[in-house]
Design a protein around this nucleic acid. Structure first.
Lengths: 119, 119
DNA sequence: CTCTTGCTGAACCATGTGGTTCACTTTAGG
DNA sequence: CCTAAAGTGAACCACATGGTTCAGCAAGAG
């Protein structure tokens, strides 16, 4: 089972457009902190923080090469996210598809709503 | 096309274990704020905030019924997230599979630049 | 050795998050 | 009508985020 903390960090890392663009950029090949920062007009320190968050989430790996830091994609972690979503989405799909059936069967629990509540 | 803000909100909403559990709980059927709060030992106000974030991300829909608020799953938004991940994962998979080749071809002109990457 | 380049760390700031408590409104029930 | 329950909103708190600037430090270039 996927650890909760890993999901937390990975989802959080993806919840920022700048970081998603960094991932897309790295999808075209490794880059240094400076190369990543330049198109955003961002300070090196700011970019370093983003890369650190991505690295912490396992989405990126880095390596010091000379005085530069090479960043490249380590996107295996996305599969954890995918498997989580896929798993529950399949469960929910059944529930959502059977929504009408659910509301017609709602006599068992003590919840009581009008029959045309879903819209 | 998936909007940046929508992805931001959806990923951010998923980046919290409590909210993921709320989604799982709602996958078994609608629940009120109180019913959702109880298993976490959380205040109603706290749960309301979580539900609001999920609702803002389009992952949950709510409806006032009497003095309660019925919350139910609106998980269609997960498909946007899935499609984003799937799209780039496919690109990245090629890149990662050919990682060795990439390093030996480092000096080659840029091979492929996908045009409809989010920018 | 010296100077520049690329990165790093610390400190700072504004804003958002995850939670609380308290006061209030609306609704249900006797 | 009166009271209790469910939710809501405002205010607060500790802490994380996303960014900055400034002062270093290591590695190349001359």
């Amino acid at each position: 089972m996927v650890q909760q903390e890993v999901l937390d960090r990975t989802f959080a890392a993806l919840a920022d457009g700048t970081r998603r663009q960094i991932l897309i950029r790295l999808g075209q090949g490794p880059a240094t902190i400076g190369e990543l920062a330049e198109p955003f007009g961002m300070s090196l320190t700011g970019m370093k923080k983003h890369v650190h968050i991505l690295e912490n989430a396992g989405l990126v790996t880095t390596e010091k090469v000379g005085r530069s830091r090479q960043c490249r994609l380590g996107a295996e972690r996305l599969e954890d996210v995918m498997s989580w979503i896929t798993f529950y989405q399949r469960l929910w799909a059944r529930r959502l598809d059977g929504l009408d059936a659910y509301f017609t069967l709602k006599n068992a629990p003590d919840t009581d709503t009008d029959k045309d509540a879903e819209r």
